[in-house]
Simulated assay, not measured.
Amino acid sequence: MLFNLLTVVVAVVLDQLVKAVVVATMPLGSAIEVLPFLALFHARNTGIAFSMFAGLGDVGLSLLAAAVLAVVLFLWIKTPASRRLTHFGLAIIVGGAIGNLIDRTRLGYVVDYVYFHTPAFDFAVFNLADAFISVGAVIILLDEFVLVGAGRGRTAGRQGD
């Protein structure tokens, strides 16, 4: 449990630290090309992931984010302690959600800065908290459907032998 709480704290601190550096060193709307397909681009997201639900307003988005966070925390509590990979995935999701919720309640928007692009395709601008949430979801799916699911299949196969 201590490792999971430490993971949440580290995720929040890293997220807020990077956002503070972006805000302090880059004017809004400015970009720094890192690679031909990757740039740092200082943006403000008034929606949630990929600017969805921008029309809900600050209070509505904060309440929605808090509700989602409450559901994730409930799932985290209900997940058996033996599912360490799932717990890690949930911890980085919670850390990312808290990081974005801090921005939303403090600033009224979320600071975004990672911009993937090609000449033919522009991906939404996002931040480290969004990456934590996405990677955490992938980790949970991997644990549930590949690692634990494969174990269930082997167990069921042995019972039929």
Score class of each variant (00 low, 15 high):
Val18Lys: 07
Val21His: 09
Ala24Thr: 03
Met26Asn: 11
Met26Trp: 09
Leu28Thr: 14
Leu28Ala: 14
Ser30Ala: 10
Ile32Tyr: 11
Glu33Lys: 14
Glu33Ala: 13
Val34Glu: 02
Val34Pro: 06
Leu35Asn: 04
Phe37Arg: 08
Ala39Ser: 15
Ala39Cys: 08
Phe41Asn: 13
Phe41Ile: 07
His42Ile: 00
His42Arg: 08
Ala43Val: 13
Thr46His: 06
Thr46Met: 04
Ile48Arg: 00
Ala49Glu: 04
Ser51Asp: 02
Met52Arg: 05
Phe53Asp: 02
Phe53Gln: 06
Gly55Pro: 03
Leu64Lys: 10
Ala65Ser: 12
Ala65Cys: 05
Ala65Tyr: 03
Ala66Arg: 04
Ala66Trp: 05
Val68Ala: 15
Val68Met: 11
Leu69Val: 09
Ala70Asn: 03
Leu73Asn: 07
Lys78Phe: 04
Thr86Arg: 05
His87Lys: 15
Phe88Lys: 08
Phe88Pro: 01
Gly95Ala: 06
Ile98Glu: 14
Gly99Trp: 09
Asn100Lys: 12
Thr105Ser: 13
Thr105Val: 15
Val111Glu: 01
Tyr115Lys: 05
His117Asp: 07
Pro119Lys: 13
Phe121Leu: 07
Phe121Glu: 00
Phe123Cys: 01
Ala124Gln: 04
Ala124Pro: 15
Val125Lys: 02
Phe126Asn: 02
Phe126Cys: 07
Asn127Gln: 06
Asn127Pro: 06
Asn127Gly: 03
Leu128Lys: 08
